[in-house]
């Protein structure tokens, strides 16, 4: 109890650990896997990412050349980024805003 009381006193004097979220945002580290993005110019539409994706979130068609990701299904594991032969896929560190 004594330790708890002293801890409470310390906390009352300290700055709060939480932040007022929508107004004050946390800075994300560069390594954060936020969402999947593509540099579409480099893409050769080989479909390797589509084949490997564990959740079938990626849809690639050769004719016409389209590449699409279903962000709801994507688990941001980064497997597609690894297998991409052209290194055109990348994980951005910011999270997508809620629609």
């Amino acid at each position: 109890m004594a330790t708890m009381l002293s801890n409470i006193m310390k906390n009352l004097g300290r700055k709060a650990a939480t932040r007022l979220y929508p107004f004050e945002k946390r800075e994300l580290p560069t390594t954060t896997r936020g969402h999947l993005d593509i540099e579409i110019d480099k893409c050769i539409f080989c479909g390797a990412c589509q084949k490997r994706c564990p959740t079938n979130a990626i849809n690639v068609t050769r004719d016409p050349k389209t590449w699409a990701v279903n962000h709801y299904a994507c688990i941001v594991c980064g497997y597609c980024v690894e297998v991409c032969p052209k290194d055109c896929l990348l994980l951005r560190n910011e999270h997508l805003p809620q629609p």
Binding site: P29, R33, G78
Partner: peptide, 28 residues
């Protein structure tokens, strides 16, 4: 009180994981 503070400490761990692996829980 304990609950909040233990979870606050846990936040640091989550930050470590986010920095090293990119995910806060799902490291992958």
């Amino acid at each position: 009180n304990l609950f909040m503070q233990l979870w606050r400490t846990r936040e640091i761990i989550l930050d470590i994981m986010e920095q090293t692996a990119g995910g806060r829980v799902m490291l992958g």
